[in-house]
Design a protein around this nucleic acid. Structure first.
Length: 188
DNA sequence: CGGCTTTGACCCGCGC
DNA sequence: GCGCGGGTCAAAGCCG
């Protein structure tokens, strides 16, 4: 992995879908972030929270600790693990959006009671254990549900604007690559 | 040839 | 205790 090239390339995503992504965004931003949810204990698995409950709990901002990341030797912590989690739902025609970070896909799973597969990604940066899950809303396939777990310990390769007035540690970040990312901690 | 995706198998938490 | 279901691993194949 040539990590240096990531930082030089404003659009590091090698995914073939990237071409589609850029095309879509060039074509009048066919997506919108509809909802987002923040969980800090990994205790909430049901991401289909009614919109009225889409409240960002300020307690979630209490300094996410990277050391809570699951070590490979302690695999299968699952729901009991305590690490930062951020879920948001996006109205999009594509599933894999470029959020500025470089992800490696490591799994795909068909879920029960859902016609759509769930895709599993890890941040490909060495030492960064952030994970991301992407799936289509089983109730409304027009929406893509993205779940971030963990905290990036590095800066996004192509961060342009950080709007963090209301989200002190989880700012929305716009990228040159035409989409957005959600930063779960102060960039290190 | 290196990096990435795919995919089947395995692992383990949780509910019954 | 058992089975189900979700998360992860890792080998194989693909692609630039």
């Amino acid at each position: 992995m040539d990590t240096n090239s990531q930082y030089q390339n404003p659009n590091p995503n090698p995914n073939p879908n990237q071409n589609i992504t850029n095309q879509l965004f060039d074509d009048s931003l066919h997506f919108e972030v509809s909802d987002y949810f923040v969980f800090d204990n990994g205790s909430e698995e049901d991401i289909f929270v009614p919109p009225a409950e889409n409240v960002v709990d300020e307690s979630s901002y209490s300094s996410p600790v990277a050391s809570n990341m699951v070590h490979r030797t302690n695999r299968k912590k699952y729901k009991s693990q305590s690490e930062f989690k951020f879920v948001f739902k996006t109205k999009s025609t594509i599933e894999i959006m470029d959020d500025g970070f470089k992800w490696r896909k490591y799994g795909k799973k068909m879920l029960k009671n859902s016609p759509n597969p769930r895709n599993y990604f890890k941040c490909s940066r060495d030492g960064c254990n952030v994970k991301k899950r992407v799936e289509r809303d089983r109730e409304d396939p027009r929406y893509v549900i993205t779940t971030y777990e963990g905290v990036h310990n590095h800066e996004s390769p192509n961060c342009v604007v950080c709007c963090d007035n209301q989200l002190p540690t989880h700012g929305l970040i716009l990228h040159q690559s035409s989409s957005l990312s959600l930063s779960s901690s102060p960039m290190l």
